[in-house]
Design a protein around this nucleic acid. Sequence first.
DNA 1: CTTGATCCTCACGCACGGTCAGGTTGTACG
DNA 2: CGTACAACCTGACCGTGCGTGAGGATCAAG
Lengths: 244, 244
Amino acid sequence: MAEQTHWTIGELAKQTGMTVRALHHYDAIGLLVPTGRSAAGHRRYATQDIVRLQHIISLKQLGFPLAEAKTLLDNPDFRPDVAIRWQLQRVTEHIRLQEDLRRRLEALYAAVTTRHEVTVDQLIQIIEVTMMIDKYFTPDQLAQIRQQADQLGPAKIKKGEEEWPTLIAQVRSAMAQGLPPESDEVQALARRWQALVALFTGGHRDIAAALERMYAENPDRATAFGIEDPVRQYIGQAMAHSRD
Amino acid sequence: MAEQTHWTIGELAKQTGMTVRALHHYDAIGLLVPTGRSAAGHRRYATQDIVRLQHIISLKQLGFPLAEAKTLLDNPDFRPDVAIRWQLQRVTEHIRLQEDLRRRLEALYAAVTTRHEVTVDQLIQIIEVTMMIDKYFTPDQLAQIRQQADQLGPAKIKKGEEEWPTLIAQVRSAMAQGLPPESDEVQALARRWQALVALFTGGHRDIAAALERMYAENPDRATAFGIEDPVRQYIGQAMAHSRD
DNA sequence: CTTGATCCTCACGCACGGTCAGGTTGTACG
DNA sequence: CGTACAACCTGACCGTGCGTGAGGATCAAG
C-alpha cells in the first residue's frame, strides 16, 4: 500500500474543496502550475503542489488578491507583517464605508416604514433628504438631534410638526399684508418660529445654523416643506432683528 | 436669457460629477438613454434626463446595483421598503463577513509582530493555526481564553510556555522506559500536564476538550508543537486514568 | 479656414471564476 | 475486446462598473 505521489485535478479539488475550474484558472494565471502532465495532457499534481495550494487558500481566505498571493509565495523574502498590515487597512477602510452605508439604509428604512405605501418617487425624495442631512450635519449633531427627539417623545414631536403649517401660513399672510419684519406682530411670529426650531434642535445654535444653511442652499427642498424663498428671507430678517 | 433646455454629455458630467464614460455606459445598458440626439449623433440630455440621473446617483450611493436601479426607476409600482430591506440585509451580511476577516487579520498581525523577521513559510504556518483555531473554538471560548491570558499577564504566560518542552521530554522519557500510564510517576506528570492546560484554558472543561480535539484531528500540528501521536495517546491514557 | 475641445463608436482590460460546448481519455464491466 | 460513463482537456463567453485608449467626426471660436 504505497503512498500516492500524484493526484488528478478532480482529486485535488475534492480534497481541498476548490472547484476544478478554479484550479484551471490558477494554472492559467501561473499561480499554481501542476508539476507534471500525463501522456495525454492531464494535469498531475504532486505533494509540493498540494502544499502550495493550501497556502493559496489560506491567503485567499484572508482576502488577498490572487496576484498578491502569487507575489508572496514566489518571493520568500517578502515582509509578511507589511502585507498583513496593508490588508488590514484595506479591510478596515472597506468596513468603514459599508457601515456608513448601513447607517444611511437604516435611517432610510425607518423613514419609509413610518409612512405606508411609499412610491418610488417619494423614496427618491427621502433618499435625497437623508443624503443631504448627512452632508449638512456632523455625526455629533445627528446624535444630539436623535437624543432631543427621544426626550420629546412621539406625541410632542407630532404636535410640533403640526404647528408648522399654521405658522408658515401666518407668516405668509403677514408678508402679503406688507407688515415690516420689525413690527410687533411679525416679531411675535419670529419668536414662535425660533421656539419651534429650538424644540427640534434642542436649542443647539450650531444645529439651527446648519439647518438654515441647508434650506438656504436647497431652496427646492425648502419649497417642498412649504417655505418658499421669499418667506424664508422675510422671517430670517425678522429673527435677525430680534437678535439685536 | 432663456433657460437652457438641453445639455451635452460633457455638461451633464460636469454638473453631476459623473464621468462621460459612465454616462456612455448608462446609455449602453439602457439605464439612462438621452431624450434626443443632434443631427451629427451627439447625445442631448433634457431636464427629465437630469432628474433621472440624480435618482440613479442616489440609488447608486446606497449600493444598489445598476440593474436594480433600472428596475426601480422603470416600475413605479415597486415596493421600496422591500428593496431597502433587501439591500440592508446584503450590506449587513457583507459587513459581518468583513469583520470576521478583520478579526482574523488582527490576530494574525499580533502573532506576527511578537516574533521578528517572520518568513513567508512561518506566516503560512501562523495563518493555518489561526484558521484552525477559528474552526475549533467558539467566539465565546476565544473570549474566555483572551480573558484568561489577560489575567495571567505576559510573565506567567511565558513561564508556562517554557515549561512545556521540559514536561514533554519527561513524558517521552517515561514512555521510552515503558512505565505504565497508571504508575505514580506518570500520574504525577499527568497532573502537571492538566494543570498546565488549565493555566491557559482558565479551567474551562469545554475549551480543554476542543483543544484536545484539535490536536487529535491535526496530528501534524501537534507534532510541530512537539507532541507526536504516541505521546499524546500515552498522556491521554494517564489523564483518563486519573479522572476515574 | 484652422485649431483645439468635445464628441462619436468600437473594443480590450480588471478579478474570479461559473457555465456551457465539443472533443479526448481513463476505467470498470460484460 | 467493445462499450458505457466518469473525468479530463481547451476555448470561449458571462457578470460588475466602468477606465483607458484608438481612430475618426463635429463643434465653437478666432
